[in-house]
């Protein structure tokens, strides 16, 4: 299946503001890491070359077959990232007490950047950054949908409200925005909305929902709503807002 990345670099700045809460006093430079991957996730390590050495090798990282990123485990996803902390001045290590533990991940295949810095340990910030990366990937990486043969994937069915007519009883209870699995459903939903050129009423038909019910679902997550509205704006369609729910949404 073909995947399209509709990630425009100009988005990065907006996204950074929206998705990160790092302190203002730090320099936001990514440092040049001497290895591409982070060993925390048992990853291939790239040493600085010394003569006559045999690098530690691990099995190669999962191939980036454009997309499928959200199917990857955290470890595998991390393997596709370049990681940096915020540039520190001075020698670091034993010299310093400053808790410079903010983390910045750059997902190399897509160029998406996620960062986190509000936790007390670097390890935890890394975990938050990867969680953010997942939702950014879900929002920004699109795959083409064949509307003629469309059947919603299970991840999407799981985030639909029970009143959807195509949602079988075997799907289980509805998954909300706080569940980590929501990102994958959101990605599939955005794929569909993208395929129908931003029309919520058309998308709703494919999902066995009323336009109002799908709008409510879109409004339940801020980043999802923003993404749908950005898409609609690019197609010159009015955005979806709570106050316009009563009105007919096309």
């Amino acid at each position: 299946m073909a995947h399209k990345i509709i990630f425009k670099p100009t988005f990065i700045l907006n996204l950074k503001q929206q998705f990160t809460t790092t302190t203002t006093s730090q320099t936001h430079n990514i440092s040049h890491c001497h290895f591409l991957h982070h060993p925390f996730f048992n990853i291939k390590i790239r040493p600085i070359s010394l003569h006559s050495t045999t690098p530690i090798t691990t099995t190669a990282a999962a191939t980036a077959n454009h997309g499928g990123y959200l199917d990857l485990t955290d470890d595998d996803l991390m393997r596709q990232c370049e990681m940096g902390t915020f540039k520190t001045s001075g020698p670091g290590g034993q010299h310093r007490n400053k808790r410079e533990s903010a983390v910045r991940l750059k997902h190399l295949p897509t160029g998406i950047i996620a960062q986190a810095g509000e936790d007390r340990s670097q390890h935890m910030n890394r975990a938050s950054a990867i969680k953010r990366l997942r939702s950014l990937i879900a929002l920004k990486v699109r795959k083409t949908v064949d509307l003629d043969a469309y059947s919603p994937p299970r991840e999407l069915l799981q985030i639909l409200p029970p009143k959807s007519s195509i949602r079988g009883s075997d799907i289980g209870s509805q998954i909300g925005p706080n569940n980590p699995k929501f990102a994958m459903g959101m990605q599939a939903l955005l794929d569909l909305i993208f395929a129908v050129d931003g029309s919520v009423s058309d998308a709703a038909k494919y999902l066995g929902l009323s336009t109002g019910a799908l709008s409510r679902l879109i409004l339940s997550d801020d980043s999802l709503r923003k993404e749908v509205n950005d898409l609609r704006a690019s197609k010159r369609i009015r955005g979806i807002y709570w106050y316009s729910l009563w009105a007919q949404i096309q």
Partner: peptide, 27 residues
Amino acid sequence: LVDYMKSNKSASLCNLEIFADFAGIQR
């Protein structure tokens, strides 16, 4: 450290590597 090991410990220590920390400092 690597030089020291290479000239004094090459009979016992091998596969020497240097790694950087996340600020890019060889650590």
